[in-house]
Simulated scan of single mutants.
Amino acid sequence: MDLSQLRMFKKVADSGSIARAAEQLYCVPSNITMRIKKLEEELDELLFIRQGRGLVLSPSGVIFLKYTNRILSLCDEAKRALSSNSVPSGKLSIGAIESSGTGRLPKLLSTYHQSYPAVQLEFSTDTWKNLEDKVVKHEIDGAIIAVKSTHPSVCYEKIYEEELVVIASSTYDDIESAESLIDKNIYMWPEGCPYRKALENWLLANGVSVPITSIASYGTILGCVSSGAGISLVPKGIFDQFKLIGGIKAFSFDELKPIDNYFIWHKETGCHSAKDAFLELITGSEIKNTEA
């Protein structure tokens, strides 16, 4: 077993295809097939199961992937610790909930790339729970979520507050209270979203009961609202990003308190100058106070 085998195994596990893994690793598929077969022989376990035209992890493969992520993460840490180059470099994998990825991060990612061109930045969006799981499993180096993590393996730092606004079509009457949402269609992210929970708590506190339609996309939610199909509650950064398009207006309420956003990373990350530089940038006053 060697690191190249583990990297091949991880690529196939992540992509679900030997062909796609070969493209990403710039090698021929037959080489990966042979190395994975030798790895399975050494472990005396089947790591993949063929499903249609792709591959999925076997139960043993799922277990082995967890150890592979830890091993590769530790190797990357060792390289960083031994490097005499103090300038951030290497790979940095960052995840974020969609509200941050859409509202605040585009400008930040551009600034980071210009400041640290030697860093190979990888960015993705997901739900806060999936992002936390990926950090715990060493699949990503850090993530931005809107929930304070209580996982024992996770470190966190508050990076900013997201103000909340109720949005409606510009053709709607003004939203004056929670009661204004009665008989309106409400569009929100699915259960588990902290912004949805804030809306539900506000409605409950005011004795308002309305059905909520789940949509896992701010683009779709904004499209529904601007067309006059219903109402939503979103981070102000999302509204600021899309208000110039027209067709929507926002309303603020004192009862809807800002929600803290956090940057999280694994406690065992160790020396990681690229991650530290990212955290320093996102906690800077310029970023925190910048409207999207």
Score class of each variant (00 low, 15 high):
Glu191Asp: 09
Ala205Glu: 11
Ile63Cys: 00
Glu132Val: 14
Arg70Pro: 06
Ala22Glu: 06
Glu179Lys: 15
Asn261Arg: 13
Ser93Thr: 11
Val166Glu: 06
Ser209Ile: 04
Leu108Ser: 15
Lys66Val: 02
Ile32Arg: 03
Ser252Asn: 03
Ile245Glu: 13
Ala205Ile: 00
Ala198His: 02
Ser226Gly: 15
Leu199Gln: 04
Asp44His: 08
Pro106Ala: 03
Pro190Gly: 09
Glu291Ser: 12
Ala78Gly: 02
Val208Asp: 02
Val135Asp: 07
Ile259Glu: 01
Cys193Gln: 05
His272Leu: 01
Ala292Asp: 06
Ser153Tyr: 11
Thr171Val: 12
Phe48Glu: 04
Val225Phe: 04
Pro59Asn: 04
Leu256Trp: 01
Gly192Thr: 04
Phe263His: 10
Asn201Pro: 01
Val87Phe: 05
Ala205Arg: 07
Lys79Val: 02
Asp14Leu: 04
Ile18Lys: 11
Ile238Gly: 05
Tyr156Val: 06
Arg104Thr: 13
Gly223Met: 02
Glu176Gln: 14
Cys224Met: 14
Leu47Trp: 00
Glu179Leu: 09
Gly61Cys: 02
Leu43Cys: 08
Cys271Arg: 15
Gly103Cys: 10
Phe253Asp: 02
Gly237Pro: 08
Phe263Arg: 05
Cys224Lys: 15
Ile97Pro: 05
Arg20Ala: 12
Glu98Thr: 14
Ser93Ile: 03
Leu109Gly: 11
Phe263Trp: 04
Glu23Cys: 01
Arg80Lys: 05
Val12Gly: 09
Gly284Ala: 14
Leu82Gly: 05
Ala168Glu: 12
Leu164Asp: 00
Ile282Gly: 12
Ile145Arg: 09
Ile144Lys: 08
Tyr112Gly: 12
Ala78Pro: 00
Glu41Asn: 13
Gly101Arg: 10
Tyr187Thr: 09
Gln120Cys: 13
Lys134Asp: 09
His272Gly: 14
Ala146Asp: 08
Ile71Asn: 03
Thr283Val: 13
Ser214Thr: 01
Glu291Arg: 13
Pro258Trp: 01
Ser227Gln: 13
Pro235Ser: 12
Gln120Thr: 15
Val62Arg: 09
Asp14Pro: 04
Ile49Met: 05
Ser86Trp: 02
Asp76His: 07
Leu199Ser: 05
